[in-house]
């Protein structure tokens, strides 16, 4: 796998076997939008937990030290500021991903049987991570899933932000209370993804380097 992979563009004679741009695992726009997104998501989670604590949906609250904003109004200010960062940055990512065909190329097709096989292999520690440029089925499912959660969390957030002006959207999500639940579970899904994502990045440090330097 490593021999045929494109992470090593220089062959034995010292000349470049492939044009250097092919060795780039993550193009610049992906790296920039990735880290802006990371910033926006952490601000949104911290401030979102602050907002949650002011009116908890369930019988628990989040530890104050993990929240952002100090109190409800501060949390709201942060949340309603970072939401623009998330949406603007997300639009740039999706438009460029669709225009360049990268999203389709990297994420599709997703076959359930492959996902089951690769998740089982990953849990057993047998999943090859040699070729960082090509996602395995477990990665495809995770990345497609978190993109979907992103769409759901923005839609439910809009429904809660403007439940009267956007009342059709709110009705689609089960009204204001329904949208709160959807928003919460989409957050939970994203936090779960984040845990897996960060653990994997730390287990395979080359992938973290690739998201910073591109290769």
């Amino acid at each position: 796998m490593a021999l045929t992979g494109n992470t090593n563009p220089v062959d034995a004679s010292g000349t470049q076997a492939q044009p250097p741009e092919q060795s780039v695992i993550h193009p610049l726009y992906v790296r920039i939008t990735h880290w802006i997104n990371a910033l926006a998501v952490l601000i949104l989670i911290g401030s979102g937990w602050q907002i949650y604590n002011a009116s908890p949906l369930f019988a628990f609250t989040f530890p104050g030290s993990l929240t952002l904003g100090g109190w409800l109004a501060g949390g709201l200010l942060w949340h309603f500021a970072a939401m623009w960062l998330l949406v603007a940055n997300g639009l740039v990512y999706v438009v460029l991903g669709l225009a360049t065909g990268r999203l389709r190329r990297q994420l599709l097709p997703i076959r359930p049987a492959d996902v089951v096989r690769d998740v089982a292999a990953a849990l057993a520690g047998r999943l090859s991570r040699d070729d960082l440029a090509r996602y395995n089925a477990a990665q495809k499912a995770l990345y497609a899933g978190v993109l979907l959660a992103g769409v759901v969390i923005v839609a439910s957030g809009l429904a809660m932000w403007k439940p009267v002006q956007l009342q059709e959207l709110a009705a689609l999500l089960g009204g204001y209370e329904g949208a709160r639940l959807v928003h919460f579970f989409a957050m939970a899904a994203i936090v779960l993804f984040l845990v897996v994502h960060v653990v994997m990045a730390l287990l395979v440090p080359r992938s973290l380097r690739a998201m910073i330097r591109g290769r």
Binding site: L39, I43, G64
Partner: peptide
């Protein structure tokens, strides 16, 4: 304007503290 939390307006965020490492 609860005074103690007023001063925590921009602080009190382990997540953001970690973020400054990146930015």
């Amino acid at each position: 304007l609860p005074e103690p939390s007023r001063r925590l307006f921009l602080r009190n965020a382990a997540s953001l503290g970690a973020l400054t490492l990146f930015t």
